[in-house]
Amino acid sequence: MTKIKSLADLRKLKDEVQSKIKLREKGDHPENLIHIKVSMATCGIASGAKETMNYLIEELDHQGIDAIVTQTGCMGYCYAEPTIEVSIPGKEPVIYGHVNKDKALEIIEKHLKLNELVDGIIPTNYKTIED
């Protein structure tokens, strides 16, 4: 380990190491963050949900967009896997089907950044027990 020689050095190190705990901070205060849930049941995993999820995490991190990406169970749209649910604070969640890497990038570029909906939305017609 190299020595920290000034307050400026310390701040620089802080920026470097902050990523180690940032995920926990985000998880503790999820209220104002974009939340993407990736459906990860057997059908989703078989269709490549894992790759989609990893890609989303990397790309969001790369672009510096603060978001939480978590897994969820089967959403029931097994014909359209991988499926993801995008929730922007204060807005209704939107579900997309057939999300491969290209689709994921399109969703980041248009939906998350410009707030434009993208093709591939699955209309939700269910209610959860919390509704």
Partner: peptide, 25 residues
């Protein structure tokens, strides 16, 4: 319950030693 106590980087990442730095500077 938030950081790994055996890793100083996690403490620094959460504002650790910033108070000492501010005082000294």
């Amino acid at each position: 319950g938030f950081i790994n106590p055996e890793n100083i980087d996690e403490y620094i990442g959460n504002d650790g030693y910033a108070a000492l730095g501010t005082c000294l500077e």
